[in-house]
């Protein structure tokens, strides 16, 4: 079966914001993927032509660093709290909802969010986030294996 297309969102120079990109680094030999800064218009464009998308992003939700959120975006929206965590007020959550309103959401689109706590310029990735990066990467691999064998 066709593998999902991975889009990792984040800024590699802002501490935990790099989480989505680090997940992609772990899976670069297993999946087609794209590192993205989350700019909405370009993001909507990036997933056109793909039927199965996995978005991986850092979130700032008030949850403890490293907490993992999993959402099936065909069935549910990203919580507003994630939308507000963008450094630009028009971010990933808005891109998803805009695409939904325009009928441009891929048939399958799944979201992994990793809660961060340090988003400072030039900051380090928190140890809890690093652990979750590994866990999310493994989860994506396992989910694909399950789908393949189903």
């Amino acid at each position: 079966m066709k593998k999902p297309f991975l889009i990792g969102i984040g800024n590699p120079h802002r501490g935990d914001d790099a989480a989505g990109l680090l997940v992609l680094d772990r899976l670069k030999n297993d999946f087609e993927s794209l590192k993205h800064d989350g700019e909405p218009a370009a993001l909507i464009d990036a997933w056109q032509g793909h039927d199965d998308i996995i978005l991986v992003d850092a979130v700032s939700s008030g949850a403890g660093a490293g907490e993992i959120f999993e959402l099936d975006l065909q069935k549910e929206s990203l919580p507003d709290i994630f939308a507000q965590s963008s450094t630009h007020s028009f971010g990933v959550a808005e891109a998803v909802e805009l695409a939904r309103a325009l009928g441009k959401l891929p048939p399958a689109i799944f979201f992994y969010g990793i809660a961060g706590e340090n988003f400072s310029i030039g900051g380090d990735v928190s140890p809890e986030v690093e652990k979750s990066v590994a866990a999310v990467a493994q989860s994506i691999l396992d989910a694909h294996k399950e789908k393949k064998h189903a």
Binding site: A41, I44, E94, L98, L102
Partner: peptide, 17 residues
């Protein structure tokens, strides 16, 4: 928001994109 606007003004929002 633009998301709310897109529901009623889809052609305009698509033009913007």
């Amino acid at each position: 928001s633009a998301v709310h606007m897109a529901k009623d003004h889809a052609p305009a929002v698509e033009r913007g994109l």
